[in-house]
C-alpha cells in the first residue's frame, strides 16, 4: 500500500517538474511578446537574411532565447538622415515608417572601442545593417564607445559620434528608435536637420535595392580602424 502511494507521489512530482521545466524553456511570455511585437517582415528586404528588418532591435531574436539562429553581441542599422516628424505624425506608424526608415546607408563604417577587447570596425550592408556574432569578437566587454562614418563620392568622410557610451545594450534600436522623444534620440543617422529645418543629404543618399533585386556585391564585413 505504502509502495503504491510512493509511486503516485513520484509520478505527480515528476509530472510537475516536467511541466515546469518545459514552460521555462519555450514559454517565456515576455520574450514571446517582444518577438511578436516586431510584426511582419519589412517589405522590400529579403526575409530571414542579413538584410531583413532594418532599424529593428536585432537581439530581440538574435540572442540566447532565439528564434534567430545567430547570437549577436552588437547589431544595428545606420540611416542617412535624422527622422523629424511632428507629434501628430508620430501617432501614425505608416508615416513614421515612410519618413524615418527608408534610407539606410550602404557600407557605412561602424567603429567600436570596447572597455576590454580592443577596437574593431564593421561595414553596414545595403540594408544599413551591421552585426557582430558572438564568436566574431571574443572578449568584447561593455561599455563601448561608437562612431559611424561614411566615405562620400567626393572622397570626404561624414562622421557621426555617439555623444555618450553604450552601457550594455547590444541592439542600437532598443535606445535609438523613432520618433526622437524623451526616451530616445531617434534612429542612428549621419545627417541632422539644420537650423532652417532642412535635411541636406548628399546625392548618393538614397535607398539601395538589396538582394535579390540587386546583385549582392558581398562587401567585406570588417573595415580598417
Amino acid at each position: 500500500m505504502v509502495r503504491k502511494y510512493l509511486l503516485h507521489i513520484a509520478l505527480c512530482v515528476g509530472a510537475a517538474a516536467s511541466s515546469f521545466g518545459t514552460s521555462s524553456c519555450i514559454n517565456d511570455p515576455v520574450h514571446n511578446s517582444a518577438v511578436n511585437a516586431l510584426g511582419d517582415e519589412t517589405p522590400g528586404y529579403p526575409e530571414e537574411s542579413q538584410y531583413h528588418r532594418p532599424g529593428q532591435p536585432c537581439t530581440t531574436c538574435h540572442w540566447t532565447q532565439g528564434p534567430g539562429s545567430n547570437k549577436f553581441v552588437l547589431a544595428g542599422t545606420v540611416f542617412w538622415g535624422q527622422c523629424n516628424i511632428t507629434d501628430q505624425e508620430a501617432l501614425n506608424p505608416a508615416i513614421v515608417k515612410a519618413k524615418c526608415d527608408r534610407q539606410p546607408v550602404d557600407r557605412a563604417e561602424v567603429r567600436v572601442l570596447a572597455s576590454k577587447g580592443g577596437a574593431k570596425c564593421f561595414y553596414t550592408n545595403c540594408a544599413g545593417n551591421f552585426f557582430v556574432r558572438e564568436d566574431e569578437w571574443n572578449g568584447l566587454t561593455y561599455p563601448l564607445l561608437v562612431s559611424v562614418s561614411k566615405k562620400l563620392s567626393t572622397g570626404q568622410y561624414k562622421v557621426a559620434k555617439m555623444s555618450g557610451h553604450i552601457g550594455r545594450e547590444p541592439s542600437c534600436s532598443n535606445c535609438h528608435d523613432n520618433p526622437a522623444r524623451a526616451v530616445s534620440p531617434g534612429q542612428v543617422y549621419l545627417y541632422e536637420y539644420n537650423e532652417k529645418g532642412e535635411l541636406a543629404l548628399p546625392a548618393e543618399a538614397k535607398a539601395l535595392k538589396c538582394p535579390p533585386e540587386a546583385p549582392n556585391t558581398d562587401p567585406p564585413k570588417e573595415c580598417d580602424l
Binding site: 507629434d87 508620430a90 555618450g164 520618433p179 526622437a180 522623444r181 524623451a182 534620440p185
Partner: peptide, 20 residues
C-alpha cells in the same frame, strides 16, 4: 540631456528630447 528626459506631459514627451 543625453539620456532619459523628464516627462513634460506632452504627447510623446517631445518637449524634451534625448540628446537635444
Amino acid at each position: 540631456s543625453k539620456g532619459l528626459r523628464l516627462p513634460t506631459g506632452t504627447l510623446f514627451d517631445v518637449a524634451l528630447v534625448s540628446g537635444v
